[in-house]
Design a protein around this nucleic acid. Structure first.
Length: 273
DNA sequence: AACGCGCCCTGTCCGC
DNA sequence: TGCGGACAGGGCGCGT
């Protein structure tokens, strides 16, 4: 998916343009993107609600409405949230849900593979779900000590550890690989064998790569689009992800790809041990 | 009980 | 030009 930087980019775009707007209608075109609710119930609960805030938790877009209703959007691999007044809105080919707003605009949820999910919560139910996610990596709580303590408890490859949303919230395969490259740690390394000094480097690398990606409005490999339907600008700055066979930017060695738990990992065999 | 794995679904690309 | 296979940002639920 869309990882933390992509969700954050969408949230920042959406916030000023939909906060305070009221939902006057909902059309569900592909019901299988709704989690645990029928299209009729989904429409009924949202219609007439006013958007009070737009935020992010992990890779999720969190839209709070009046009268204790929370809409949580997980984009899966190919989910997009695009405003109907964006010039590129007409290019959407897989619109699954349309939200009609009281100013005449629509918010479109588009998802080719339909791995994404839209779910409604009460504030309390969302708080319970929210508590299951791990630390936000850009928050002050994400200290080197916390990361090291967490890594020490697990024997899974460190790349897998970084993908576990109950441990760190919002890191996906692209930024896990990029952060490990920056920190000089091989993705296959068992988590409990990462040293305190390496954990400290990894913590900084994670924060740096996520912040830089947000500044560039995310990474578009193929499908990701922001709320205006535009691609992100971080892809050219990827140093190893998707670069099998290309030279390492630091030492010139050939970047390798290995499969860990059915997902690709990329690394420099010389810079990452 | 921490992990690994298969699966959900569509699109694209590559080799033959 | 067509066809089969590999691959893709995620996450859930299952079995061990």
């Amino acid at each position: 998916m869309p990882e933390l930087p992509e969700a954050e980019t969408i949230v920042r775009d959406l916030r000023p343009r939909v906060t305070g707007r009221r939902v006057v209608g909902v059309k569900v075109i592909k019901p299988d993107v709704l989690a645990r609710i029928s299209p009729e119930q989904f429409r009924r609960r949202l219609k007439g609600r006013t958007i009070e805030s737009v935020g992010r938790r992990a890779k999720n877009i969190v839209i709070r409405f009046d009268r204790d209703l929370v809409l949580v959007i997980n984009l899966g691999m190919t989910g997009r949230v695009v405003s109907s007044d964006a010039p590129r809105a007409s290019e959407l080919r897989h619109v699954a849900v349309r939200f009609m707003l009281d100013d005449g605009r629509e918010l479109l949820y588009d998802d080719a593979r339909r791995f994404g999910r839209l779910e409604l919560f009460s504030s309390n139910a969302w708080a319970e779900r929210d508590a299951q996610f791990g630390v936000e990596p850009l928050s002050a709580d994400f200290t080197p000590e916390l990361l090291y303590a967490g890594l020490k408890q697990s024997r899974v490859p460190v790349r897998n550890w970084l993908l576990d949303q109950t441990r760190i919230a919002g890191v996906g395969n692209i930024y896990a690989n990029e952060a490990l490259y920056r920190a000089g740690i091989r993705p296959t390394r068992r988590s409990n064998l990462v040293t305190p000094a390496e954990a400290a480097r990894l913590r900084d690398a994670i924060r740096d790569v996520l912040s830089e990606a947000i500044a560039r409005r995310g990474t578009t490999l193929a499908d990701y689009r922001d709320a205006n339907g535009e691609k992100g600008g971080f892809e050219p700055l990827l140093q190893v992800y998707g670069r099998e066979g290309e030279p390492c930017p630091r030492c010139g060695s050939t970047v390798r790809r290995v499969v860990i738990s059915n997902r690709s990992a990329f690394y420099c065999p010389k810079c990452q041990r």
